[in-house]
Simulated scan of single mutants.
Amino acid sequence: MGQGIVRFGELKVESYIEGNTNNWLIFSPLPYSRQHSSGIDGDIVISATPTVEIIDVDLDVPIDPQYAFAYSIATDNKIKMAFDKTKFNKAEAIEVLKCVSIVYELGHLEVNGSNYVMIARNSLGEEIHRTVPQTLDQLKTVISTFDDTRSVDVSGFLSYQLVRDYKVT
């Protein structure tokens, strides 16, 4: 199996949860990742910040002080990053994690016809839109619509990335 690498800044924050001890961010699934168990796999490497892997039920359990974050990944392949609510607020946690890389194992990939996924990023490199699998002709229309309706003097420029669509088996 191959490996994938992605920064937290490239993933969307899908939700934010406030617990009694910790708060946590739930990020979109790791792209084309193999399916994880609901326990501790130990095969995800998060760089540049002290982290420890935990199970979902421990997201609100005090984090050992030697770690800045605790993370959990279950069968949904979404990363849940817990942090002590006295150390960070939501915005600070997102900012700290933005450039942190995640190395993970890819699943077995099979090409999904002649479809591609288009990822639009803002001038900061953050993902702002991801299409469903479409043909290249359909994606040309999406890109031209984005370009025709976006004010670059206010919102900055967009960059587009086309990725072949795969099914993970």
Score class of each variant (00 low, 15 high):
Ser114Met: 08
Leu158Val: 12
Val57Asp: 12
Ser101Gln: 13
Glu127Asp: 07
Lys167Gln: 12
Ile94Asn: 00
Val57Phe: 05
Lys90Asn: 05
Ser144Cys: 03
Asp148Ile: 02
Thr149Val: 02
Thr131Val: 05
Pro29Val: 06
His129Trp: 10
Ile54Thr: 08
Lys80Phe: 04
Asn89Lys: 10
Val45Ser: 13
Glu92Gln: 08
Asp147Pro: 03
Val61Ser: 04
Leu162Gly: 06
Arg34Pro: 10
Glu126Gly: 01
Val103Phe: 07
Ile63Pro: 10
Leu30His: 10
Asp64Ala: 15
Tyr104Cys: 13
Gly125His: 09
Val117Met: 00
Asp41Val: 01
Arg121His: 11
Glu127Ser: 13
Ser114Glu: 12
Val168Cys: 08
Ala68Thr: 12
Gly156Met: 07
Thr75His: 13
Leu124Ile: 07
Gly4Ala: 06
Lys12Pro: 01
Asn115Pro: 05
Lys90Leu: 03
Pro50Lys: 00
Leu124Asp: 15
Ile79Pro: 00
Glu127Tyr: 09
Ile94Met: 00
Gly4Gln: 08
Val45His: 14
Ile55Lys: 13
Gly4Asn: 04
Arg7Lys: 15
Trp24Glu: 12
Pro50Ala: 06
Ile17Phe: 06
Glu127Thr: 15
Glu126Thr: 03
Asp137Arg: 04
Ala48Thr: 07
Leu30Lys: 11
Val111Thr: 01
Tyr116Lys: 11
Asp64Gly: 09
Val6Met: 08
Ile102Asn: 10
Asn89Arg: 06
Leu158Trp: 11
Ile63Cys: 10
